[in-house]
Design a protein around this nucleic acid. Sequence first.
DNA 1: GCCAACGTTGGC
DNA 2: GCCAACGTTGGC
Length: 155
Amino acid sequence: MNYWLLKTEPDVFGIDDLAALGKLAEPWNGIRNYQARNIIRDQIKTDDLALIYHSSCKNVGVAGIGKVVSEAYVDPDQFDPESVYFDAKSSPEKPKWFRFDLRFVKKFSAIVSLPEIKSNPELANMVLLKQGRLSVQPVKDNEWKLICQLAQRKS
DNA sequence: GCCAACGTTGGC
DNA sequence: GCCAACGTTGGC
């Protein structure tokens, strides 16, 4: 099983929105970056776990945990001219973009903030800190464990 | 295939 | 709202 970090803007869709769905899954759509696409298409598997990271907001950081409940599948939004995620260069024969379904697992009692992550030497190699703009990224076992511990400590 | 111009992400 | 980082586009 693998660990991931998924960025999302809480003003659009955050941990509370995922929690509100309960056991229903949310399609993690709209990823339009090739590096993130390749990770989704080739690496993300059912039962993997993901840190939900809130970006572009007041309290930036990891807000909770979600679980992958599908394999990668073709994102239908890319064929819908009405969708903001429409891509005229993609076709059903040769789809460019993929998505997967995510289910709520838990919300941290407090955000594990970006400054907190930055100040922890054991987290210095997180992709989050190395590569600012990747919205789907791998998390190492020890990083996962430590962030969960930091979250636990707040409760 | 290079690279300048442009667009987007995302922290602050 | 600013701007640095960096991905994408398109002319040549």
